[in-house]
Design a binder for these strands. Structure first.
Lengths: 213, 213
DNA sequence: ATAGTCTGTTACCGATCGGTAACATTGCTG
DNA sequence: CAGCAATGTTACCGATCGGTAACAGACTAT
């Protein structure tokens, strides 16, 4: 694989004129971490090296290892952060309809479609990580598994709150549509992919599971 | 006839045909290629090196480079082979119901569930590759994109043959369910994942799109 | 001014990566 | 048997990987 990562520009030498704020602790660590999250998401975990991360953050490898124990530790922190942001996004999308689980699910898929329209979207960070990490990497794979199980549980709970006669089945069906949207988004650019059909499908599935037995 | 000479044959893309001696003995190239397909699928493209592939095939790196121009060429051949096998699987699943598109779609998801139950299943090889390769790797990403577009087109055609009032929408909804099954299979072991709920969801979606406007 | 903390810089380490040269060995075939 | 193609073996190359040591400078606090 000798394709040059054109997305990673060898960082220019900026004088870093940021004056250290009184409360500013380790701003280098934050810069590096944000850069790492961005690069990991865009190019995959195995596709980005420590050196590239530090350089893109306007720093260097030594400063990186002063803030992070190892690349593994950084990857773990990356996945945790992605999970944190994901649930924050989820809760926000759902919060508008506190007592209407059906409307909550629809809002979730509406929000997903909105994100999928942005240029930088590359699907689900946690799910993508599952492709790259092998099963024997316990910490990482357990983290991803726990995340996916929580997605499943939340959808299950919402389906139950709707009064579905088979809440587990409806929850799983919704999860397939959700993850299908993330997975296809990797290949189909912007708003042209099948994810645009998610909402009608969601409504159809919900209707079917809410209908009398 | 088309066997690679020791010279540098640049630009010719070998179709990865299986070459055997008249006695039927498997050649080194085939052993290496099968091993590579297995390892790429299990550990990801970036997670397996040329040395590991050759060693696992009982050969060595030098013999590898006598059969393949580069690792990139091997990866391309791998994706082409995965696509070839995928369509063969698809056609087989569909062939039993030549004039019943709805039954064909159901058979497709039944076959997917069957495969998902096997231990070695790690979802969709082509889709997983999309996570690892970056957009500027034209050959690979175009290959994956063409594959996904064909999946979409075939599902669209089936939905149209069913007489759906929104064939594109139904096809996309089916694709989300299909890819959702592949994506979730990466994390949930064996038959415990949400993919078990695919078939009822498929039937519900089809019913909804076949119902009167 | 002094001390201490944080950061940048350079150089280096062992391992592994993709890839190649040179030679030894096997095995088939005329 | 000879000849030849396919394969195995060893050693090597430059680049990059994750990770570290040592030193120089900038900044803050006292």
């Amino acid at each position: 694989m000798n394709s040059e990562k054109s997305g990673i520009s060898r960082g220019g030498e900026q004088p870093t004129s940021i004056t250290c704020t009184p409360g500013g602790k380790s701003r280098v660590r934050d810069r590096i971490f944000e850069t790492a999250c961005d690069l990991f998401y865009r190019h995959g975990i195995h596709g980005v090296g420590v050196d590239a991360i530090a350089a893109e953050a306007g720093s260097n490898k030594m400063s990186f290892y002063r803030s992070f124990e190892s690349k593994d530790a950084l990857v773990t922190a990356y996945l945790r952060e992605q999970e944190r942001e994901y649930w924050a996004w989820w809760d926000t999308a759902v919060a508008r309809f506190p007592d209407n689980p059906r409307r909550q699910v629809e809002a979730l898929f509406e929000a997903q479609l909105e994100i999928a329209k942005s240029t930088h979207c590359r699907g689900c960070a946690l799910g993508n990580a599952a492709v790259e990490i092998s099963d024997d990497e316990d910490v990482l794979s357990n983290l991803v598994r726990a995340y996916k199980e929580q997605v499943r549980n939340r959808l299950h709970a919402m389906a139950h709150a709707m009064g579905a006669h088979d809440a587990a089945g409806l929850g799983d069906a919704l999860m397939l549509l959700l993850d299908g949207g993330y997975f296809t988004r990797l290949v189909f650019p912007l708003g042209s992919g099948p994810i645009s059909a998610a909402l009608p499908a969601v409504r159809a599935v919900i209707d079917a599971y809410l209908a009398a037995d």
